[in-house]
């Protein structure tokens, strides 16, 4: 069994909406193994970004907070860590890149200075050495004309170059873990291809362990080794990417795949998952997906369902998984 480098245990995150607290992440447990790429996939409101932000203590203050759970990294529990401790982990232990480099980078500071500042502040090197490290990292992320980029402001860079600068900023201190939160969502498809390939190359050459948050199953297939599918604050299915994408067990995962235009049956219409994700203020008892599930069965699906894991590490939270019911039975549920 590989030793996980980062381990999230039974994480709960509460979100404050209109004065009341709601459970936005409920009991998420994840292991990130050394050198692997783990994707967390889900739609808006699934809790995927809150889970990732929890790791670095970056939840928006006063709005969201970890209510319980443990996050083990480098012998510490980050869920309990002080701000000073988290500050040491950020950058040198765990790096993070965001969807919008334009809002994540400081707009009034030159790109080079932003990278240098972090290194100097963490006391890793002198300003002179830090400049050399910054330049080397910018060259590593294949930024064109790196000397000039160092002196430019973020708004002077194209979208792709900005995301490269963001990646350099996250990697300059050689973190063991990189969290990428929708790193290519704001980019055009040709630039997305370049950034994904760069991330994969950096991950391999630096032996990084990486968590990538995305809503795009194509990106999951391209970069990840394992994937966790989140829905309404819970992990509903997790396992090897190849298994999950070709033999999903949870109806929600199958639904997500079915909605993709790639799964064409020759017609022009797209599949739809009926209904919408339950809002935070609605409390659903039992399976979180039951209101939209074509296999819902009154009774068993109304009780709390545990995430059960098979020997191959394929885990799912469903008592009527895909492929288990007889055709006649599935016909019945559909018309019920």
């Amino acid at each position: 069994m590989p030793q996980p480098i980062l381990s999230i245990r039974d994480l709960h995150v509460s979100l404050r909406l209109g004065g009341t607290e709601h459970d936005a992440v409920r009991g998420v447990s994840l292991n990130l193994n050394k050198g692997e790429v783990l994707a967390i996939v889900g739609e808006s409101g699934s809790g995927k970004s809150l889970t990732a932000l929890s790791v670095l203590g970056l939840l928006p203050r006063g709005i969201a907070a970890i209510s319980s759970g443990e996050i083990h990294f480098d012998g510490k529990d980050l869920a309990q860590a002080s701000n000073a401790e988290l500050d040491r982990v950020r950058g040198s232990g765990i790096g993070i890149i965001f969807q919008e480099p334009l809002s994540a980078l400081n707009p009034v500071m030159r790109v080079g200075d932003q990278i240098i500042e972090g290194i100097v502040r963490r006391g890793e090197a002198s300003r002179k050495q830090a400049r050399k490290m910054a330049l080397e990292t910018l060259i590593g992320v294949r930024i064109s004309d790196p000397e000039r980029r160092m002196k430019q402001y973020p708004h002077e860079l194209s979208g792709g170059m900005r995301q490269r600068a963001m990646i350099a900023l996250a990697l300059v201190s050689n973190p063991a873990v990189l969290i990428a939160d929708e790193p290519t969502t704001a980019l055009d498809v040709t630039v997305q291809a370049q950034i994904l390939s760069l991330l994969k190359a950096q991950q391999k050459s630096r032996d990084l362990s990486m968590i990538i948050i995305t809503h795009d199953l194509g990106i999951v297939a391209e970069v990840a080794d394992r994937v966790a599918v989140m829905y309404a604050g819970e992990i509903v299915e997790a396992g090897e990417v190849e298994t999950i994408l070709s033999r999903p067990k949870h109806p929600y995962t199958l639904g997500l795949l079915s909605c993709l235009p790639e799964f064409s049956d020759g017609g022009r219409r797209l599949a739809v998952i009926a209904g919408s994700i339950p809002s935070l203020t609605e409390s659903v008892s039992g399976c979180v997906f039951k209101t939209r599930c074509p296999l819902y069965m009154q009774g068993p699906c109304d009780a709390r369902i545990a995430l059960t894991s098979g020997p191959d590490g394929h885990a799912f939270r469903c008592i009527r998984p895909i492929g288990s019911e007889t055709p006649a039975e599935s016909e019945q549920t559909r018309h019920a």
Binding site: P248, P251, L254, R269, A271, A274, I322, G323
Partner: peptide, 17 residues
């Protein structure tokens, strides 16, 4: 082409809510 099992499960349920 990529194939997945039981693709029709959601096709038949594809009514707009």
């Amino acid at each position: 082409p990529v194939t997945i099992p039981q693709i029709d499960l959601f096709r038949t349920a594809a009514e707009t809510t």
